[in-house]
């Protein structure tokens, strides 16, 4: 029981790190980015290549995966995404689905279409017994890293100059530009940060989520659930939504295997109908 809760929390934490970038691009910048999972996949595969093929230590590979995904994010943002910021949602959907198709095919061409895992070092395979709950060191690491990231992001967004500039740029780009805030640059940095976090989540979570070329489509729904259920007004909303989703999914698979993902999709539908702004958004909305 508690072990399921623990696994669910670890799973939810990973989902949060994966999806938090999307909650900014989709929730705040209003760009329908269905290709967000492709950045996570990129990070995951960078991790696979570094650890399994080149023998880089696991803990060193994680930040490298994040940096690689962030760089890919920067390049794509500058070359492609800037052109679709102002376009219709239909265009954004088409564009990002196209990107997903390309990313999936490219990965299966380069690295094969089978599911891969990152080899964990020995010290992460240990298990502890705490108050009768069996905990894997790997999942503890996941929870620790993701929890720290959540706190860091909250501080970054609410306490720093960058955070207030970002909120200003999102609320009213025209006025923000008039005040001397370089909106394009802020968006670029945000996009890079979101992609980097997704890449980190992809590498860190490869053990839990599994990694294959269909990753972006398979988890797209989960990311969208986190963003829509959590709302985009704070870091806290998506965080709680991701935890709920993680625990519900793990528990559902354990206790109600027959229901499958049915419960989760139905819950999302209900939330969407009753609270289109998200569960934790203030009722008035923006």
């Amino acid at each position: 029981m508690l072990t399921i809760l623990f696994d669910g929390i670890a799973y939810g934490m990973i989902l949060f790190v994966l999806a938090v970038g999307l909650s900014v691009t989709l929730g705040l910048m209003n760009v329908v980015n269905l290709a967000h999972g492709a950045f996570a996949m990129a990070g995951g595969y960078v991790g696979v290549v570094l650890v399994n093929r080149l023998g880089v230590p696991y803990l060193a590979a994680l930040p490298l995966a994040a940096v690689a995904a962030a760089l890919i994010g920067v390049v794509l943002e500058r070359t492609l995404y800037v052109h679709v910021y102002g376009k219709s949602h239909l265009d954004q959907v088409l564009f990002t689905i196209g990107l997903v198709f390309m990313a999936s095919s490219a990965v299966s061409w380069a690295l094969g279409s089978q599911q891969v895992f990152i080899e964990l070092p020995g010290f992460l395979r240990q298990r502890f017994e705490v108050f009768g709950v069996s905990m894997g060191a790997y999942r503890l690491l996941v929870i620790g890293v993701c929890g720290a990231l959540a706190v860091g992001l909250q501080v970054l967004l609410s306490r720093t100059r960058f955070g207030s500039r970002l909120r200003a740029a999102v609320d009213d780009p025209v006025v923000a530009r008039g005040l001397g805030i370089e909106v394009g640059r802020i968006f670029l940095l945000t996009f890079a940060l979101g992609s980097g976090l997704a890449g980190l989540g992809g590498a860190l979570g490869a053990e839990i989520l599994g990694l294959d070329p269909n990753f972006p489509l398979k988890f797209m729904v989960y990311f969208l659930i986190v963003v829509t259920v959590g709302g985009a007004s704070s870091i806290f909303g998506p965080f709680l939504a991701a935890l709920l989703l993680g625990v519900a999914d793990v528990a559902g698979k354990y206790y109600l295997p027959a229901a499958g993902a049915f419960v989760i999709y139905s819950v999302m539908l209900v939330v969407l109908i009753l609270r289109p702004q998200g569960l934790f958004a203030p009722r008035s909305g923006r």
């Binding site: 679709v84 376009k87 088409l94 196209g98 198709f101 390309m102 990313a103 095919s105 061409w109």
Partner: peptide, 15 residues
């Protein structure tokens, strides 16, 4: 195996 790549490319270019 990879025809999806080219379809994807068409759509990215299109948009």
């Amino acid at each position: 195996e990879y025809w999806q790549f080219w379809i994807g490319l068409v759509f990215v270019a299109l948009v």
